[in-house]
Design a protein around this nucleic acid. Structure first.
Lengths: 153, 153
DNA sequence: ACATATTTGCTAGGTAGCTAGCGAGATTGG
DNA sequence: CCAATCTCGCTAGCTACCTAGCAAATATGT
């Protein structure tokens, strides 16, 4: 969203940011659909398969999503038998997430998703990509900053 | 999402695209929350207040969302009494959307949201913005293209 | 030691996106 | 003129994001 009234690039960049995000997500979803996995579920499996058991709250921070959102994602994966959730021995509030044998098996069958990135950005001038990253990063920082101030008031 | 494994900008651009999109959306949502409006609901009001009555299917195309998604958004606004939905006289499948008096009143009270864009992108070099738009646009087109091919098969 | 944070995960409820499939209406080809 | 096809909006059911508020556990300050 973030509009698109008059004609300058300033108006368009917000719209393209949204569209690009959704396009990437749609491709990811369509590849994962046959496996009955969403994109964030994929990321959780990726993390647990690659980096080993992880605290639920750390995973939420990695993905920069809210704890409540994480609860739902994890619940789905637990229901499907892909992930185990075990209370931490020391701190009983926290829960440790671990991939199950079923989950590991599925992970092994999943196709490599890195081609998505290649398709999207392959062949584009590195300098241009760097500029794009800088613009997005700057905008994001300003917006997140604005949000915090608004929340604090 | 769209990952972030090794260290090149190529990996980061997807992540920042997502984060930037959500940051902008979060600011918009936080401004609109007191009025009990979501960001897309705002856009529908904007369109109807600015451009006059609009066909539902045209609005879905403008926002590049699915008809089914539009159904939900419109239903919410109708429930709140902000928007009227009237079958077209000629083509009985289509529905014309019109802002109500209540909706127009609310629209008059809403703050101007263009400051969000100013905060996010103000002061950034126009050439850099143009580069960012080009990168995002290219990536989006490639991804949407890929998706169509995948769907066609 | 105990009252007061703070942190963690959960529930409840809302927004915004998607696909799949339905029925009613419009269009098009033979 | 009728059959096949397309279009539009709807429902049902899913993912993934959010806030607000709760209960339990931990951490902190006096």
């Amino acid at each position: 969203m973030v509009e698109k009234r008059n004609g300058s690039d300033n108006d368009l960049v917000g719209a393209w940011t949204k569209r690009c995000y959704f396009a990437g997500r749609a491709v990811m979803d369509s590849v994962l659909r046959p496996y009955d996995l969403g994109s964030v579920q994929w990321y959780v499996l990726y993390q647990l398969a690659t980096a080993g058991p992880t605290m639920q709250r750390d995973l939420a921070r990695l993905l920069t999503i809210e704890r409540a959102t994480m609860t739902g994602i994890v619940a789905t994966l637990v229901r499907k038998g892909m992930v185990e959730q075990e209370p931490d021995g020391v701190d009983h509030r926290q829960k440790l997430l671990r991939i199950t044998a079923t989950g590991a098996k599925l992970w092994g069958e999943l196709p490599d998703l890195s081609f998505i990135r290649s398709v999207a950005f392959g062949g584009i001038d590195d300098a241009d990509i760097a500029v794009a990253v800088r613009v997005l990063q700057t905008a994001t920082e300003r917006l997140e900053n604005l949000l915090q101030k608004g929340t604090a008031s």
